[in-house]
């Protein structure tokens, strides 16, 4: 345990440590292409770059905020009570979902009030996000990092941001590829979802290369 911690890339200076967390969350542990979470909007909202951009931004924002809130909930409430026999592992699933749902509701209200333009550009994607498993996934993976070692609020922030950016990169890549595919040249049976899944699979294989680079 101690030996593993000693060799962890998290031991460097703070900036280095945060950078490592960010890159690892965004690239090596890309929530979409290595974990296959959030596939549903990934496939259906990647037809146009513009929609993909809006959805991606919304995911970045919500993931960052909910990971931090859920980190606080876990680190300050659930984990300290675990020694008393509290089933933190089961409870976190329920509570994280509630937090995400409430946060999305709150954001929808706030954005409509603050910027009606932004509300229409991004707000319409917000309700879809409540049920995006990538968001919940980011919070749950964050917990697996907290349980083994010190993982502070800044770490959680960078982790959540990284996970969101990873999802954003993936959907933008897919939308870019899809907008360049000439549907005519695809065999009829593979048009639409078929070719999209193949593209996503090839992208996932490409991301496997990053796997060995950093290990949290």
């Amino acid at each position: 345990m101690i030996a593993e911690l000693a060799s962890s890339p998290l031991d460097g200076p703070l900036v280095m440590r945060l950078l490592v967390i960010f890159v690892s969350a965004a690239v090596t542990e890309n929530i979409l292409l290595t974990r296959f979470l959030g596939m549903c909007p990934f496939l259906s909202i990647s037809r146009q770059m513009r929609s993909a951009f809006g959805m991606g931004l919304a995911v970045v924002f919500v993931t960052t905020c909910t990971v931090v809130i859920n980190w606080a909930l876990y680190a300050y409430v659930l984990k300290p009570l675990e020694p008393y026999g509290l089933p933190a592992e089961s409870l976190k699933l329920i509570l994280f979902i509630v937090v995400i749902a409430a946060f999305v509701q709150f954001m929808e209200m706030a954005i409509e009030r603050i910027s009606i333009r932004l509300y229409f550009a991004l707000g319409i994607f917000l309700p879809l996000i409540t049920v995006n498993c990538a968001i919940l996934g980011a919070s749950l993976f964050m917990v697996t990092h907290v349980s083994g070692r010190q993982f502070g609020g800044w770490d959680a922030l960078l982790y959540g941001f990284g996970a969101g950016v990873g999802w954003f990169i993936a959907i933008m890549l897919l939308a870019g590829v899809r907008s360049r595919i000439k549907e005519d040249s695809v065999p009829a049976a593979l048009r639409g979802p078929g070719i999209t899944l193949i593209v996503a699979g090839i992208m996932a294989m490409a991301f496997v290369i990053f796997q060995g680079m950093i290990k949290l």
């Binding site: 549903c40 909007p41 496939l43 259906s44 909202i45 929609s51 319409i124 994607f125 879809l128």
Partner: peptide, 8 residues
């Protein structure tokens, strides 16, 4: 599958 707001 989820739909974009426009499709909806």
């Amino acid at each position: 599958m989820k739909q974009t707001p426009r499709d909806k």
